[in-house]
Design a protein around this nucleic acid. Structure first.
Length: 280
DNA sequence: ATACGCCCCTGGTGGC
DNA sequence: TGCCACCAGGGGCGTA
C-alpha cells in the first residue's frame, strides 16, 4: 500500500479539494471491505461539511462538522480518486464508495483488493479508535527519538526489518521505506532489533526521517496502482536505492569487489532488499 | 509478551 | 492464446 509518504500525499490532495465542502450525496457500492463499512455511514456523512484533515500512521482522518470523523485506510491497493466538477469521467472499477460535494467534486474510494478500511469515529476521541490506539510514534514528529526507539526495541530478538514494519514500534513505515531507511542507516535487515548499538539507532532515526521527508517532497512512490488523488504520479520510485533492485549494483559501492550488488531476502514472508557489504 | 505462519482479495507478469 | 505459479505498497488472527 501506500505507506506514510503516499498517505500524506493523498491527504494533502483531499484537503486541497475538499476542505470546507459539504458532502451533498454519498453512495456505498459495496460494504464488505476489510471491515464492513458501518451501516449508518451514508446517513452520517450526507449533508456534513468537511472541516479538517489529519494523518496518523497510514490512516487518514477527515473531520466533519457534527462531531464525526471518517477514518480511511488504503490497504495494499486503495486509492482516492478526485474528479472535478463537470469532468464526466466514468466511475473507475472497484469503486466501493462515492461521495459528491455540493460543488460537484466526486470522491471515489477505489480498492481492488479490498484490504482497505472506511469507518466512522468520534472526532473528539479519534485516537481511541481500535486501529489507532496502539500505533507507535509519528516518525516525522519530535517525539520520535533515538532514545525512544532504543527503548522500544530493547530486548526484541526479531530482525530489525520486521520490527520496523510493526506499527506499534513506529507508525507509517512499510516494506519500501523500511528497506530504504535500513540501507541509508547501513543496518542489515536481519540484525536482531534489540542488539543494535545506540549509534546505529541514531543513524536509523535520521535515515527514516530523511527518507520519508524526501519521499513526501516527491509525491510518494508510484508503482502499479498508486497515483495521487487527481491522477498525478509520485516519482520517489526513481530514487529507490535498494527496494525492488535485486541484482543491480549497489548505488554506494559500484565496482567494489566485496559487493555482490543488491540482494533479496525473504523475512516474515516479505521481500527485503539490501547491500551485503554496506549493511551490517 | 513475542514471533511466526496463514489468511483476506484481485490483478499483473513471466514461464511453459 | 491459455493456464498457472508467483508476486504485490497491509495487517489481523490464531497458535506456539
Amino acid at each position: 500500500m501506500p505507506e506514510l509518504p503516499e498517505v500524506e500525499t493523498v491527504m494533502r490532495g483531499m484537503a486541497g479539494r475538499l476542505l470546507g465542502q459539504v458532502i451533498a450525496h454519498a453512495a456505498l457500492r459495496r460494504a464488505d471491505l476489510r471491515r464492513a463499512v458501518p451501516p449508518d455511514f451514508v446517513r452520517v456523512v450526507t449533508g456534513a461539511r468537511v472541516i479538517g484533515f489529519r494523518r496518523r500512521g497510514k490512516y487518514i482522518l477527515m473531520r466533519l462538522a457534527g462531531g464525526q470523523s471518517v477514518l480511511w485506510h488504503l490497504g495494499m491497493s486503495g486509492r482516492i480518486v478526485l474528479t472535478p466538477p463537470g469532468a464526466n469521467a466514468p466511475e473507475p472499477a472497484h469503486c466501493h464508495l462515492v461521495l459528491m460535494t455540493g460543488t460537484g467534486v466526486r470522491v471515489g474510494f477505489v480498492d481492488p483488493r479490498r484490504f482497505g478500511l472506511v469507518d466512522l469515529v468520534a472526532s473528539a476521541a479519534e485516537d481511541a479508535h481500535p486501529r489507532l490506539s496502539g500505533l507507535g510514534p509519528e516518525p516525522l514528529e519530535d517525539g520520535f527519538t533515538g532514545a525512544l526507539l532504543a527503548a522500544t526495541l530493547s530486548g526484541r530478538r526479531s530482525p530489525i526489518k520486521t520490527a520496523l514494519l510493526d506499527q506499534r514500534v513506529v507508525a507509517g513505515l512499510g516494506n519500501i521505506y523500511v528497506a530504504e531507511s535500513l540501507f541509508r542507516a547501513r543496518l542489515h535487515p536481519a540484525r536482531p532489533a534489540g542488539a543494535i548499538p545506540r549509534a546505529g539507532i541514531a543513524r536509523l532515526v535520521a535515515a527514516i526521517r530523511e527518507t520519508l521527508g524526501e519521499a513526501i517532497a516527491a509525491g510518494g512512490s508510484s508503482l502499479r496502482d498508486y497515483v495521487q488523488p487527481e491522477g498525478e504520479l509520485g516519482y520517489f520510485q526513481h530514487a529507490w536505492r535498494v527496494y525492488g533492485r535485486a541484482g543491480a549494483p549497489c548505488p554506494d559501492c559500484p565496482g567494489a569487489p566485496a559487493c555482490a550488488g543488491v540482494l533479496r531476502l525473504v523475512q516474515a514472508g516479505r521481500s527485503s532488499f539490501y547491500c551485503p557489504r554496506k549493511q551490517r
